[in-house]
């Protein structure tokens, strides 16, 4: 059973994937996200950290046995169990399909839309409208897939649900107001099923769906 | 043993990953990349295709048993064998680490640098200079890792090598001229070891490293 330390800054949705996976697998995970254990911007610039994690990025994982991993999907995979990874090559590849889908199709437009509402990026009306259209495409693909399914792969939670749900947390908390998410009921049902699982709730706390689409925060 | 059809346009580096994996695993793979089997921009817009592959993107895989997959990493994983995927959870997560590294750290700057030289996108001097710096960082991380290793994970070729090498083909063919790649000899040695493996060569043909950095093609 994997055991070790996850270095990250607090509330990092990329780190959430590994933390939730550990809740399901029982892997003993210490989270180093605040001083003195870890200070983002300092610890990850030290030679000792860079020697283990040459990109200097978080999340980064160091096993009690010294085994080091970077890239959030790799860490979440390592801290998972067979149920989460997929128990057959077919299921494993379907899990990987949705993990890739989250990174390739959800994160870019979700960030382009949400970041300006958090005040951490310049607002650009055209970019935001384009991002909204991309998010609608993502939601309709997921809504179709989830029309006949409770979870994305097989009959129970897998890394596919953990990865896709974590990539959508900020969308649901910040901008997917009721009228926007109304055409995609299967996705909202699936998302709430996931975040209300005890293993998700232990890590995420209460995830409140937004009532009003956040606008650009000057 | 997986068997089926890979839909793609010709010379698609994302499809190369699956094709090379199949060469190692022995999976029987038909490639549909030209008419009448497949016409990019038409076939992938038909209702039949979109029903199986809702994003309408390629590469897309359909098994002889009807099993459908999209996302190139998932397809390559499905067509692999245990040797390529990693034979332990540790090795599997290291493979996934480098597969994610290719998508997250290599593809963005490689596209920003190479696309304008292929006439795919407008040239932007600042974006190109920034991309060059990011590619240097990627090359130095790989050069350090490969200082004591022949391959990225374990002692033999894995999906890590296949994914990272395929993500760098355009860089080496188009812009990594001798003076640029000189500080990273371990990476060039590793890259040439990979592309000269018979399983790579069957799919890629001869991969010639560029002598002169291609400039913007107006």
């Amino acid at each position: 059973m994997a055991a070790g330390t996850l270095y990250t800054y607090p509330e990092n949705w990329r780190a959430f994937k590994a933390q939730i996976a550990a809740q399901y697998s029982g892997a003993r995970l210490k989270v180093a996200s605040s001083a003195p254990a870890f200070t983002f911007g300092q610890t990850n610039r030290t030679p000792a950290f860079l020697n283990n994690f040459p990109l200097g990025k978080v999340p980064a994982f160091q096993g009690d046995d010294g085994f080091c991993l970077f890239e959030s999907n790799a860490i979440a995979h390592y801290l998972s169990n067979e149920a989460l990874r997929g128990s057959s090559p077919q299921a494993q590849s379907q899990v990987l399909q949705w993990v890739s889908f989250a990174d390739a199709e959800i994160i870019p437009p979700a960030s382009a839309w949400v970041f300006p509402t958090l005040g951490i990026m310049q607002f650009n009306k055209q970019a935001t409208e384009q991002a909204k259209e991309e998010v609608k495409k993502v939601l309709s693909v997921l809504n179709h897939h989830l029309n006949t399914r409770t979870f994305l792969v097989g009959e129970r939670v897998s890394l596919a649900d953990i990865s896709v749900a974590c990539s959508m947390i900020w969308l649901y908390k910040q901008v997917l107001e009721p009228s926007f998410r109304q055409p995609f009921p299967n996705v909202t049902r699936w998302f709430q099923t996931c975040v209300n699982q005890p293993q998700f709730k232990t890590v995420l706390g209460e995830v409140k769906l937004c009532d009003k689409m956040a606008q650009f925060d000057p | 043993m997986a068997a089926g059809t890979l839909y793609t346009y010709p010379e698609n580096w994302r499809a190369f990953k699956a094709q090379i994996a199949a060469q190692y695993s022995g999976a029987r793979l038909k490639v549909a990349s030209s008419a009448p089997a497949f016409t990019f921009g038409q076939t992938n817009r038909t209702p039949a295709f979109l029903n199986n592959f809702p994003l309408g993107k390629v590469p897309a895989f359909q098994g002889d048993d009807g099993f459908c997959l999209f996302e190139s990493n998932a397809i390559a994983h499905y067509l692999s064998n245990e040797a390529l995927r990693g034979s332990s959870p540790q090795a599997q997560s290291q493979v996934l680490q480098w597969v994610s590294f290719a998508d997250a750290e290599i593809i963005p700057p490689a596209s920003a640098w190479v696309f304008p030289t292929l006439g795919i996108m407008q040239f932007n001097k600042q974006a190109t200079e920034q991309a060059k710096e990011e590619v240097k960082k990627v090359l130095s991380v790989l050069n350090h890792h490969l200082n004591t290793r022949t391959f990225l994970v374990g002692e033999r070729v894995s999906l890590a090598d296949i994914s990272v090498a395929c993500s760098m083909i355009w860089l080496y063919k188009q812009v990594l001229e001798p003076s640029f790649r000189q500080p990273f000899p371990n990476v060039t040695r590793w890259f040439q070891t990979c592309v000269n493996q018979p399983q790579f060569k069957t799919v890629l043909g001869e991969v010639k490293l560029c002598d002169k950095m291609a400039q913007f093609d107006p």
Partner: peptide
């Protein structure tokens, strides 16, 4: 967390690159 997000490197332009690549290969084919 918001302050940390600024450091996240996200490929915001990915959809634009995907479209450009798609157009290019559709034209070739």
């Amino acid at each position: 967390a918001v302050d940390y997000f600024v450091q996240e490197k996200i490929w915001f332009d990915k959809p634009r690159y995907d479209d450009a690549e798609r157009h290019f290969y559709e034209r070739i084919n």
